[in-house]
Nucleic acid binder design. Sequence first.
DNA 1: ATCTTAATGGACCGCGCGGTCCATTAAATA
DNA 2: TATTTAATGGACCGCGCGGTCCATTAAGAT
Lengths: 207, 207
Amino acid sequence: MGAPRRCRGRRPDPAKRAAIVEAASALFCSHGYGVSMETVAAAAGVSKQTIYNLFSTKEQLFGAVVASRSELIVAAIPTTAETLAPATGLLRIAGEYLRVMVGGQVPVVYRLMLATPGETGSDLIRAFYDNGPKRGLGHLAHYLAGCDAAGSLRVPDPALAAECFFGMLNGQILIRNMLGLQESWTPEELEAKARYCVDMFLATHGA
Amino acid sequence: MGAPRRCRGRRPDPAKRAAIVEAASALFCSHGYGVSMETVAAAAGVSKQTIYNLFSTKEQLFGAVVASRSELIVAAIPTTAETLAPATGLLRIAGEYLRVMVGGQVPVVYRLMLATPGETGSDLIRAFYDNGPKRGLGHLAHYLAGCDAAGSLRVPDPALAAECFFGMLNGQILIRNMLGLQESWTPEELEAKARYCVDMFLATHGA
DNA sequence: ATCTTAATGGACCGCGCGGTCCATTAAATA
DNA sequence: TATTTAATGGACCGCGCGGTCCATTAAGAT
């Protein structure tokens, strides 16, 4: 199976595929699933037939876009801070979280999921949620539980605490971004917000 | 101009119009803007022509749906608690907020806004945000500022505090609801979450 | 009674879009 | 070189949907 098995003829251009997914992602996000394949082709600088050579149907292209974007969100899940003390660890997690949220890449994925052609609550959506946001939440909860066990924090309900911590960091950022309402945060403001939330969290859960 | 000027003939049935808006709202939310007018008509138990007698175009129907739904969200903005002491006032606001969020009516409006046919960040969306969520935020900030002035709380940045307070109440509820992922909260759980958030908030901002 | 308007349902039009086909050209292997 | 495959672009099909028209029926007003 592993045999490279080189074959004849011209090789498919990986840049084309990437350009198509990129263009489709941007268009689906800004204009919804209703954009025509011709528009996607034009935006990607590619012929329509080339798209159909790579993706058999529009829904498959959509699936590829979602998969591609989901990688981003998974990559954004913080894996650092696992062994740091609460004060610094939470601050680092908060900084990561805010950066990726205001950056807009995560909101884009959410928008994408809501532009889905099928029903809401589909398998695609469920898989996305379990794989992305839920894992991020789980990671934080696990970290908090560890702190509790180590005695550096008192957090009787790590899942609830994790959800509230991310929630207060977020505030309205995600939803405003999804709605396409401009956000202008200076790094100092983000830093201040992160510190404010961490302080509030520690004021309750500090050991 | 104000003359009632009763006219001849059969009167239009207001129930028809309501049924149309209701059906369109549900379908736009669950299936996006792509649903056909015939589907809407069928769901409303009405002929297609009747829709076009009431709304000249599909976009106008969409606008009517948004307007109708926005009323709900505006009505959900808490106006109580204006003079209550922080501990009880915040708890009441929190309870209101959670109830309306898990109830799903607010998430439905957000979904609607994202199903919009035009660009993101349109006037429609901006108007909705300023009129709904922003007003709710402003109300809480005003309340907090009042408490600060009265000396019952210390809250140097009421806007930030308001955003974080709603944010931590919300957590992932709104987004999960928008994605169509089922939520099952018992009243006790909601009560516990509200109390947890209020306590955390007061631990930092208590006078 | 009569008149006027609401509402129905079905036929119909036009267009845009998903998807296919094909003849041609470009790039890689042999 | 010859051969194989990628990519192009343009013509084309079918269908679904937004929107219109119309003849008929129902329900008020006078």
